[in-house]
């Protein structure tokens, strides 16, 4: 059952990585504004007329 020592080590290490990820995300300001991105994602991309297609027909 010595493998448990290894597994416990792994689980602690992974948890530490997640904690580090949170600290990094928080410090770089990713949680500063939790409201606007939700609205922003609802905007449509602008329709850009594809010129190449029109050219295709003319030529």
């Amino acid at each position: 059952m010595n493998i448990l020592y290894f597994l416990v080590g792994c689980s602690v290490l992974m948890a530490l990585i997640f904690l580090g990820a949170f600290v990094w995300a928080y410090k770089t300001g990713q949680n500063d504004d939790t409201h606007t991105p939700g609205i922003r994602m609802l905007f449509d991309d602008e329709v850009i007329k594809e010129k190449s297609e029109e050219d295709h027909f003319s030529s």
Binding site: S11, V12, A15, F18, L19, F22, V23, Y26, K27, N31, D32
Partner: peptide
């Protein structure tokens, strides 16, 4: 006005609590 240190402390305390419970 935002107390960033407190949130980090909560994160660390929550992390340690979860592992200790385990």
């Amino acid at each position: 006005s935002v107390d960033k240190a407190l949130v980090l402390k909560i994160a660390v305390a929550g992390f340690c609590m979860g592992n200790v419970m385990l």
